[in-house]
Design a protein around this nucleic acid. Structure first.
Lengths: 203, 203
DNA sequence: GATGCTATCGTACATGGTACGATCGAAGCA
DNA sequence: TGCTTCGATCGTACCATGTACGATAGCATC
């Protein structure tokens, strides 16, 4: 038993059955130990959630430090998006918890460094960080939510067709088209955000 | 008793004590009814959460339809960000639930319409939507998380100074500066995203 | 062998979602 | 007016879950 082993098993288990159905008892059973043994390594469930979020951040592969700043930003944002998609059940944790563990810090630092090297001052750098993280994780979450909703309720549709008129034509159009490839959507969005950042730096 | 009244009281109560401490029993007590009465109007707690998220979307003030598309996008994104900040405890719901209720649809439609009027095709329009929503709500969530973390653990700081060296200089710089005004940060980020979108449309 | 420490775990409690069936008041009808 | 019906309300109870508490067991040190 070690904190490391607990966190890894927790990620796997939560991934399998969803965050809501993830219980301490089941985790302990999966580890083959008593429920209370977990509490010797982690103070409570919140701390475990935090550790799980940190664990995902720690999976990011860092870019070469001498690459151009926008390549590094693109690389890290993509890594984050892919990591989030690998762990759909845990995306809410990525959105909600701060990354405070030592495991998460290198990736955070690399992202901040890339933004800083673009010429932004520290406050702007922090903003870039949040924009990119929000974009990557938010997009992943939107995809997860759609997948879950479609599994539970069937394809999305507009509720009332009771009035003959089309009250929400844009929404209908968005729902009607063929589903966009998540990869294409991500790349489009990433390019939009990066080009906005480039314009800001004058590059 | 009506669904409307329940949802409004739920929003207020959750706002007061946080989503985690929000219970059906307390909500019923707040309403002056028995716990089980709530279940005559809503099937379960998940549905209530969904309704709460929709309720927030319904608060958005729609822009004038004849304004330029980027003004409309800016207006709606700002509205969403402000609504999220008014309800910090509920931001996780905004990030997690889809907006499926009739209350939420007008704002969704207006956002999609503004993006479509920029010249994007339906798939790109949907992507714009998710980028902007992720940005606005993600930024609000980051602010909330920071506030909560500082209330509970004191100001953010780097844990180990045990090695003399500075392992994470960028992170240190980001934490060191004076706290940025949330409004300024939002406007900076919004301008970045919008300028990225304008470049895409050739405008 | 005694002692103290560390990791494990069995038991028990409090909390919270919600199923079930009883109740109750009003509206319609003879 | 008395009876019926139906929708809304609610009391009770059940079950799941997080976790406090204290017991235990293995092990190292003296």
């Amino acid at each position: 038993m070690s904190r490391q082993r607990i966190v890894e098993a927790a990620v796997e288990l939560a991934e399998g059955r969803g965050l809501e159905r993830f219980t301490m008892r089941d985790l302990a059973a999966e580890l083959g130990v008593g429920t209370m043994s977990i509490y010797h390594h982690l103070p409570d469930k919140r701390a475990l959630h935090q550790a799980m979020a940190d664990h995902i951040w720690s999976q990011l592969v860092l870019p070469a430090p001498d690459a151009p700043w926008d390549r590094r930003l693109a690389h890290l944002t993509t890594q984050l998006w892919e990591a989030a998609r690998r762990h759909p059940a845990l995306v809410p944790l990525l959105l909600t918890r701060r990354f405070t563990g030592p495991e998460a810090l290198p990736a955070v630092e690399a992202l901040l460094a890339a933004a800083a090297d673009a010429g932004f001052d520290p406050p702007e750098t922090a903003t870039c960080f949040r924009i990119l993280v929000g974009f990557a994780v938010g997009l992943a979450q939107a995809e997860v939510a759609r997948t879950v909703a479609e599994r539970e309720h069937g394809p999305a549709r507009l509720g009332g067709g009771d009035d003959g008129g089309d009250a929400f034509p844009r929404l209908r159009a968005a729902l009607a088209g063929p589903p966009v490839s998540p990869e294409a959507e991500f790349e489009f969005g990433l390019e939009v955000v990066l080009s906005g950042l480039r314009r800001r730096t004058g590059t």
